[in-house]
Amino acid sequence: MKPAAFDYARPTTRREACDLLFDAGDAARIIAGGQSLMAVLNMRLAEPRLLIDISAIDDLRTIERREGYLAVGAGVTQAELLEHPTLADEVPLLAQAMPWIGHAQTRNRGTVCGSIAHADPSAELPLCLLTLGGEVVLETRKGKSRRVAAGEFFQGVLTTARRSDELITEVRFPLKRPGRAYRFQEIAMRHGDFAIVALAAVIADDAVELGVGGVADRPVMRTLPHGEKLADALNEFAWSLNAQDDAHASAIYRRHLVRELGIRLIDGETPQEDGANARQV
């Protein structure tokens, strides 16, 4: 359970980080909080030649409200975003979902962008980014950058549209829209475990944007009709996700959760348990 040997670089500018990444390509891995990557390294599931630590790049450590979205830099930890005083007003879905991420002890170091980059299919942040229609900003050498919509960014289990010479510099979460309710709920064996099913919903009067995590190989979002056609639409959505049996839950149970939890979430019947408030600490 010790990592294989690697070189370690701690650049202080984005430019320097991108240059290192350009030279090393696939042989390098970016580390920020390390709460997913360090476990992967310790188990030697990855053996990079070079680790590029971006935690000393100061201009990646910002949370900024801009026109229509909240921009979260690649150095921002999950705890920092959760403690951001205006988060519940600006992106209420995140304020509800983030207490479900791991534990307080891992949120203290784990970064928001790191979770997006890791692209675990059951992770909360990729699900929220997708459901809200957010974007990932990637930078390459010489300051060139591109934006990728969340729907194109997540391509499968731990697989994203990031190219080997690209650094994720920020993710952009769209701000709260008027007339919408935002809700999040998940089922896991224990709080903090990987979700068996996680649901994020943006609810309007006539339609619901529902994101599902933990079932398919990536988070999936679909717009469903609100009202009497909802149950059928949810059932069809649940079947379309191609749920699999695994050690944690059966495919049948996962489809059941999408239908049942989906209805309850959208109808507002999932009580915000005491724990939900507790988890915002």
């Binding site: 359970m1 390390g34 709460q35 476990a39 630590d53 534990h103 203290n108 170091r109």
Partner: peptide, 28 residues
Amino acid sequence: GCEHGVCGACTVLVDGRASRACLMLAVQ
């Protein structure tokens, strides 16, 4: 304990925040 961030036995405070020592490098 587990050396992959699950058990919490190695938790220390880094700049005042509880963190897993097995999920950090000494150089950090």
